[in-house]
Computed example of a mutant assay.
Amino acid sequence: MTSVLLIATVSCAAANVSAAIADFVRAPFVLANSAEVRVPPGAVPYLAALKLAGAVGLVVGLVAFFVGAVLVHVRARVFHNIAFPGGFLLLAVAATVHFASGR
């Protein structure tokens, strides 16, 4: 997985968490946009939950991918370059902790 893909995925997850929070607090711009496209206000929390689930799925998917990458390196006893998947795994875990803490 390239650094660009990692950055894009984490950025996408962060954007979706931000949007979900705006939906949950019923930010005026969210309600205005929803009304403009004829989405009833009662549907907004459900859409927020879907956005949040998507963000969690992106981050959890990243963690699972890099856990697998590290395990494959260990199984093959190829340690000279394990720092790369290990470093990406640490970034993915850090992003997961960050999103889970709600900060």
Rank of each mutant, 00 (worst) to 15 (best):
G68S: 04
T96A: 03
S34R: 14
G42T: 13
S101L: 08
R75E: 14
V17T: 04
V78P: 12
H98P: 05
H98R: 07
S3M: 06
G42M: 11
A55G: 00
L5W: 07
L89K: 02
Y46F: 10
I21S: 07
A64Y: 04
V59L: 00
S34C: 14
H98M: 09
G68M: 02
P40Q: 13
P41A: 14
A22T: 12
D23L: 06
R77H: 15
L71V: 13
G86W: 01
L91A: 08
V74E: 12
A100K: 01
L90R: 04
F84G: 08
A8D: 09
V10P: 01
I7T: 12
G61D: 04
P45W: 09
A13E: 00
G86D: 05
N81R: 15
P85C: 04
F24K: 12
G68N: 06
V30K: 06
P85T: 08
F99W: 02
A20T: 10
V39S: 10
F79Q: 14
L52C: 05
I7Q: 10
G61V: 03
D23H: 10
F99I: 02
V70Q: 02
G87S: 02
S101A: 12
R75N: 15
R26Q: 13
S101Q: 10
L5D: 10
H73I: 12
G57A: 06
P40Y: 10
V70R: 03
F79I: 15
V39L: 11
S3I: 06
A83Q: 10
A83G: 10
F99E: 00
V10T: 03
L47H: 08
A35I: 13
A48K: 03
V25C: 08
L90F: 04
I82T: 13
L52M: 06
L91Y: 05
A13S: 00
N33D: 14
V44M: 08
A22C: 13
T2N: 05
L47V: 11
H73E: 14
H80M: 14
L71M: 13
R77W: 15
V78M: 15
A53M: 05
V78W: 15
L6D: 06
L52N: 06
F99L: 03
I7N: 10
V30G: 07
A14V: 01
S34N: 15
A22G: 11
P28E: 09
F88H: 07
V60M: 01
R103K: 12
A49V: 08
L62Y: 01
V70A: 03
A13Y: 00
